[in-house]
């Protein structure tokens, strides 16, 4: 087992939530241009705030947090350097967009570079947290997990009163994300069980985890039933989703088995 890395859990979940909010808001803006928040700084501002909060949490995992400013030095090789640059670009675009909206300029097109840099940033995260040392996630699975987090929390975050007019619009996105997320998180550990020894150990660690099953039942099963049965989205539902994603990300870091654990045994 590896370390659960709480600062990285918070960073990855919050940064993906911020990108998800912008992605979903971009979709709403261009599909229903008459919505009340079209020119409001609220959504980009909230996404920027969440992204900054995530960045703050990320510095806590460094042995020497003040050295973090040097971490874009190795752009040639390091996905971590590229991740910081990509999230930095996404944050910069969001800051400019929020500032312009605040001063009364309405430029919805700014949402496109914000979303694109955000998706690129999520891709770089997927490369950082799926290194060769973890065969189970050294593939496309982290990108799928992270995009599910982005759409789930991005749409869930937009139901609250300041963005009240968006609650009904985001419901289908939330519903589809929950269905896809549930299928993926139930299926992937079984795929690991068909792989090499280290992948099997990862799959087994997930299946033996109470947190894993609680998350599947509460975050995906219960939330889906609530969403289908109720006309409106209850305000506590996004909090359940956030708790589920934090628990899931903790599993991602702590229950994915490293190759060095199996040295001297079959691979």
């Amino acid at each position: 087992m590896s370390s659960s890395e709480p600062p990285l859990v918070v960073f990855t979940v919050l940064s993906q939530m911020a990108v998800g909010m912008i992605m979903v808001f971009t979709g709403i803006t261009f599909m229903s241009p008459d919505n009340a928040l079209l020119c409001s700084p609220l959504v980009p501002g909230a996404a920027l705030g969440i992204l900054i909060l995530g960045f703050g949490a990320a510095t806590l995992h460094l042995g020497h947090p003040t050295g973090g400013v040097r971490s874009i030095v190795n752009l040639r090789y390091s996905w971590l350097s590229r991740e910081i640059l990509a999230f930095g670009c996404c944050g910069a675009v969001l800051a400019v967009d929020t500032g312009l909206r605040w001063r009364g300029y309405c430029m919805p097109l700014m949402l496109i570079p914000a979303s694109v840099t955000g998706i690129i940033a999520i891709y770089t995260s997927a490369r950082v947290y799926g290194p060769p040392g973890y065969p189970a996630i050294n593939n496309a699975s982290p990108m799928v997990f992270f995009m599910i987090t982005a759409t789930l929390l991005g749409s869930g975050g937009l139901i609250y009163p300041p963005f009240g007019s968006l609650a009904n619009v985001v419901k289908p996105v939330l519903l589809v994300s929950l269905i896809i997320g549930g299928i993926v998180h139930v299926t992937v550990p079984s795929l690991w069980m068909t792989g090499g020894r280290v992948q099997q150990l990862t799959g087994r660690a997930h299946y033996r985890s109470v947190t894993y099953w609680t998350r599947i039942i509460v975050q995906f099963g219960f939330s889906l039933v609530v969403l289908i049965l109720l006309d409106t989205i209850p305000p506590w539902l996004p909090l359940v989703l956030l708790a589920g994603e934090l628990a899931g990300r903790t599993l991602f870091f702590s229950h994915t088995v490293h190759t060095s654990v199996n040295m001297g045994k079959p691979y």
Binding site: R70, S71, N74, Y77, S78, L80, S81, I84, P131
Partner: peptide, 8 residues
């Protein structure tokens, strides 16, 4: 892999 991963 360490050289490629190191951000600094």
């Amino acid at each position: 892999a360490c050289l490629e991963a190191c951000p600094v």
